[in-house]
Design a protein around this nucleic acid. Sequence first.
DNA 1: AGCTTGTGTCATCGT
DNA 2: CCACGATGACACAAG
Length: 479
Amino acid sequence: MCSTANYVLPLRRTCETQAAPGRACGAPTPHGARTHGPQDAEMDAAWQELMAISELQEFEVPAEGPYETTQYQTMEPMVPMGVYGMAPSHSGRPPTCELGSADTYNRCYPEDVPPCHHQGSNTGAVYGPSDYQLNQRMHPISSQALPSLMALRGQVNVSFDGQGHRRANTCFSQGPSRHMQWTIHGQCSHVIPTDDLESDSGLSLGSSPPLASPDNPVSAVPGYQSGDTGITYRDGEPEHARRAQLHYSVNYQGQSYLHSGAHHSNFSAPNTLSHTQPETTTLRPLKHQSQAAALNDMYTESGASSRGSSQFHMYTKPQGSSSTHAPLSRDERRALSLKIPFPMEKIINLPVDDFNELLTQFTLTDKQMALVRDIRRRGKNKVAAQNCRKRKLESIIHLEQELNELQDQKEHLAQERLEFQHSLTFIKCRLTDLYAEVFTHLRDEDGQPYSIDEYSLQQTPDGKIYLVPHTTVPKRGQR
DNA sequence: AGCTTGTGTCATCGT
DNA sequence: CCACGATGACACAAG
């Protein structure tokens, strides 16, 4: 029992009508004689510490015990306790945070309560994140270079830096009337039926079937001549065996263009090139080939770049039946069939004004005009599709990287949460010890200690401390 | 034979 | 209205 300072806090159950939290409540009742003893300073400090810790009750901790919600909550006072009775620490129950030491509160801790011996413990350390925790919190998510992703990215670059062409082994004819055969690897030497013009990949082959079909040949453009040696425009300039060696250069930023290779077409003064059918390497890109090799394979014919689908080959004639050549695209064959007098490169890549000006320089039939516009539209759309696919793949890669980063962040946060929970558990343990210690100093009017099972200490927002019996549940607005 | 991948093409929408 | 780019969907060829 209290021997030196039996500061009795007369317990009144008259505060059953409590004010709402925020209201002034806590003036010492007439029965709440405030007495001070020599250990006031110590108790004040303890209470301040206790109340400071109680703010941590906002932490959400699983398996909260009823103790927190009933005893430590800040609520309306039953009895003002500006000063509480004190008794010397004679109870023989020194403050301890060992679980179960306060037998009343054994139930209040989660499973992962660490054994906490608060004596000598640095409680301040647990009131905030440790440096380690802060560092962890501030630790940036490392963007890990994922080999697979990088490899994929590289593959993407490869696949779009060089446009594969899969028609390396296709064979074609230059038209039914000429019976010219170009073969690749000598695998095809027969004349492809005329409907091969419509048999290119893709659907909706009938976008301009009447135009494209060699079954509906269009008369040659006036002034346009086609012979074995080349083409002579009406201005008299020949176009020999010129193959616009076009290949794609796709720029992600939208600078996509189809440009000629070593031999840029010059419409006003077409070059005359001897047409030789170079040996063709495997044109289809190999997935696991190196980028350079793939590019060379796709674009190179005997050192000169030449692509299949993008080549403009209408003015050429194979020299010799044994020579091989990249196949013409469907549009190229159509253009050849309809004797379009300018290269596909210009059709596709000229600005609209220049393109329209180009059209005015020739007298084209309606079918030729329609084909030219279709070629232009398809050529642009083809580049657009390539850009679109590249963007899609890069977007997928980016999202995968982002996903990995978020997963790492999730793991980091989970670990951080676990550490915070441990810290919180320790703080609660410390609080429980302090709470019990306070009770050991409380005495009623008769000098008897209050039972911690029957009473609880509660603090109002204005800082007043009240001893509230468990059986009395103060109601809001009542005082 | 079925699957995957790459590509061309068309239709459609928005600018 | 036209040109153009972007994109989904489809078909096709090759691996």
